[in-house]
Amino acid sequence: MNIDWLYGLIGGGLIGTAGALFLLFNGRIMGASGLVGGLIDGSGRHDWQERAALIAGLIAVPGLAALVMGGADTHLTDKVWVIVVGGLLVGVGTRIANGCTSGHGVCGISRLSVRGIVATLFYIGAGALTVVIFKHLLGVL
């Protein structure tokens, strides 16, 4: 087995454990786009502290870990248009669909939610098609 797959499985287990704790203790779904988006459009005003606390942990722990490890590379493109267009699409799309990889993917599929499964098929399909077009056909990625 490839070592990256093992790290994937372990890291995935931590992500799922985090989601399980948030559900069982706080009674909430751990969806990144919903937690962040609710602070942007005001729909999460009543529980902003809980959202902000989760986001603080989400930034602090990997940030500190990367500092200790001497940096972690995201390999993000340096093409400004890709960063801007990509960010806008991810932001608007996840809020229209009401979920992303964590909310629809992890939390939705694990409760056999039809919406979560359909959303996941659509975003993986669109993502794969985008890579085919922009990497293999146009050669810009």
Binding site: I83, G86, L89, V92, G93, R95, A119, G125, A126, V131
Partner: peptide, 12 residues
Amino acid sequence: GSILFGAGWGLS
């Protein structure tokens, strides 16, 4: 929404 998200995810 998921198609728009997927396109941005694939790009970035």
